[in-house]
Design a protein around this nucleic acid. Structure first.
Lengths: 229, 229
DNA sequence: GCGCGAACCTGATAAATGTCATAGTTTCCG
DNA sequence: CGGAAACTATGACATTTATCAGGTTCGCGC
């Protein structure tokens, strides 16, 4: 079994969800693509002919707002599937997927997905379960966005980055996003993000070394994110 | 298969295709519950034993934030299903469901739902499709919340209320939410919502009569919501 | 190393929004 | 009817955040 299949399986968390035959088919039709940092996998409004499994690297999923700013809705990493929502709902892509690091993805045609959904209830239920989880996360983001201050959201973002992408031996985040991207994750102006990050450095909540950013005081950040001050 | 299940299935198949008579027939079930305005159907954190179909009335789905404010994530009306996300993901409820008008709902045990999902691929795919759509809407809300001003979001909210719940012969909204609920939909302070609604009245974008609110200039509101000023 | 563009940083200021206080209005119920 | 409770309204002020306008530093190709 290739990595592409394990990607699907990991995502949907069920070895039994797809039959051997189905997996074979996926394996036969897969196409591997390399995407350079900064390049798009697909753009908002595009019609998708399939989904993309992330084999390596990280992608930002974002949407352009009327005022010309990108809002980053999600960061996807190894093992996640991009475009499934649009394929399932048979709608054009609602978000753009752009690589924030060099990536390797594999493509699975939508016919394959839709076909398996129809024929394999276990697979459908696993996908459904996964989407239900995504929906909960989205609801949580809505609450955070509307009820927390920018400072709280930035603190939260760094904790998210640590938990999801990890840190190196020296305690710096594996994924260092430019300030502009951080601003777009929390939905604020780049200057505001920079100002708050500087403030966090002064308060020894964060540390930097060149471009790298690390968490210096996780509990402090956590308390701040939760409004305990 | 009982009437309740077909209610669910039809709901996902084609909301628009359902006539009022169909809806009534479909939600005509033995396990009916009446909920008075202000009462909760379920609360955040509660373990759900099934889902609730809305037979009549309107419910707000909201989540309490750390600072003690409710964020209303969605308003659900006749024909919609509450609690499906939690039941499918087998998690406790992420949101509270509270009636904003007197309601009648029918209850369907989770075993029936999970069972049907396993046995009926079409049902699973339809539920999946519906959830994919909800997820898109949630992403859109995230972008709106973080990129639009309070004024824009309030303008948008009134257009949403008109489109989803309609207006009476005199042009007043069928669903008149208290200012506090409106504030909680757009994620702002009640006073701010009141101030902006007053401003809209002065600009003849909205009209009021007693407690009722109506849209006086839809295009004006729409332009404002989209930032065209 | 040099230069140049991109990223980062900072200050001044304006605009948006929240908070607190207080008063007017409507609704509801006995 | 009358009065309490809930809702609506508005002013004054504090705080947060955006915007504009300049700087500085960093990384990288030459």
């Amino acid at each position: 079994m290739g990595r592409c299949e394990s990607c699907i399986i990991r995502q949907f968390n069920s070895l039994r969800a797809m039959s051997k035959e189905e997996l074979k088919k996926v394996s036969d039709t897969k196409i591997t693509k390399f995407i350079k940092k900064g390049e798009a996998i697909f753009e908002e409004g595009e019609k998708l002919n399939g989904v993309y499994c992330v084999r390596s690297g990280i992608s930002k999923l974002s949407k352009l707002s009327a005022n010309g700013k990108d809002q980053i809705v999600k960061l996807a990493t190894q093992g996640e599937v991009l475009g499934q929502r649009s394929v399932i709902a048979t709608e054009t892509a609602n978000l753009s997927a752009v690589a924030v690091s060099d990536m390797e993805v594999c493509f699975i045609p939508k016919e394959q997905i839709l076909n398996t959904l129809q024929k394999n209830p276990n697979f459908a239920v696993e996908v459904l379960r996964h989407m239900a989880h995504d929906l909960k996360e989205a609801d949580d983001v809505i609450v955070n966005m509307s009820q927390k201050t920018v400072k709280q959201r930035i603190a939260e973002a760094f904790i998210y980055l640590k938990n999801n992408f990890g840190e190196d031996a020296e305690g710096f985040l594996n994924l260092t996003l430019p300030r502009e991207d951080i601003a777009n994750v929390v939905g604020t102006a780049t200057e505001s993000a920079i100002r708050i990050i500087s403030e966090f450095k002064k308060k020894n909540l964060l540390k930097t070394s060149g471009k790298r950013i690390g968490i210096a005081n996780e509990k402090g950040l956590q308390d701040l994110a939760e409004g305990l001050k």
